[in-house]
Amino acid sequence: MLLKNLLGATLLLAATTVSAQNRHEYLLDSNWKFSKGDVPNAAKPDFADAKWQTVSVPHDWAISGPFDGNNDLQVVTIEQNNEKAATQKSGRTGGLPFIGTGWYRRKLAVPGFGPGQRAVLLFDGAMSNAHVFVNGKKVGFWPYGYNSFSLDITSFLKPGDGNVLAVRLQNQPEASRWYPGAGLYRNVHLVVTDDVHIPVWGTYLTTPEITAAQATVRLKTTLETPGGKPQPLRLDTEIRDAAG
């Protein structure tokens, strides 16, 4: 395994033939179609989305407003202000219309994908209650909008470039005390690896002891193999300083 630096890692996995692991990451930032509101059948591959808005990701569908104090009204007592009775207040989320549902769709090309490979979608942030579909089939669900999450989509892909990715997001009323964002507000990645691979977040590196003279580096690496079956693998790690 080769670490280009201590934080960002390019991983090389070697078997007895000392062949490198193939790992490619693609940023899915363009050619997304977006529609606000819940849309029946929007997960279907042949759904007609030509009239939807074309957006790039990261994208926040609520940040453009319109601003309205009625968007976040609540009747509360602020004890820190020594209030004795609840009164109607607004502004806790900036008056932005973040409550509601939004759909995102895009074509999903997986370059060179074939037997012996795996494909994973990595969402850096999707607000919120994300339902993810590939070719009309539900891949997974992730409720919490502030955490990154990944989904293995290998079994949902078909050969060629005719795959379709769809994401349904929904913000619930009273889900936040401040403006939480709405939509695919952080990057979306496609990660393609061999069947034998280091998974997302499979490398854990810490420096538990640091002095002016030296430092201890602790590196833990997780390897995944088809069916979890042991294989004769060798993992090489090279740690370089700032000068290379």
Rank of each mutant, 00 (worst) to 15 (best):
V192M: 08
S128Y: 02
S150Y: 09
L73Y: 11
K138N: 05
S64P: 09
G112R: 01
N82K: 05
R105G: 00
S35V: 14
L223E: 12
G181T: 02
R92A: 06
Y179D: 00
N163K: 01
T193G: 05
G95R: 12
A109K: 14
D72F: 07
V191M: 10
L108P: 01
T216Q: 12
T101D: 09
R105C: 02
Y179F: 03
F133T: 03
Q21D: 11
P143D: 03
F123L: 06
Y185Q: 08
N81C: 00
V139H: 02
T237P: 01
D161V: 07
G181M: 00
W61E: 06
K84M: 13
G227W: 00
V55C: 02
S176Y: 03
W178Q: 10
V55H: 01
E238M: 14
P173T: 03
N41E: 10
E174D: 09
T54G: 08
Q172E: 12
R92N: 15
G228H: 00
D124C: 07
E83Q: 09
T101G: 05
N70Y: 13
Y204S: 15
T77L: 00
W103L: 00
A213Q: 15
G160E: 03
T93F: 01
A62F: 05
R118C: 08
A86P: 13
S19Y: 15
R92T: 02
W142V: 04
D194Q: 13
L6G: 14
I239L: 13
A213W: 08
E238Y: 11
P230V: 01
W32M: 03
K158Y: 04
F67N: 08
R168I: 00
A20K: 13
G125T: 00
T193D: 11
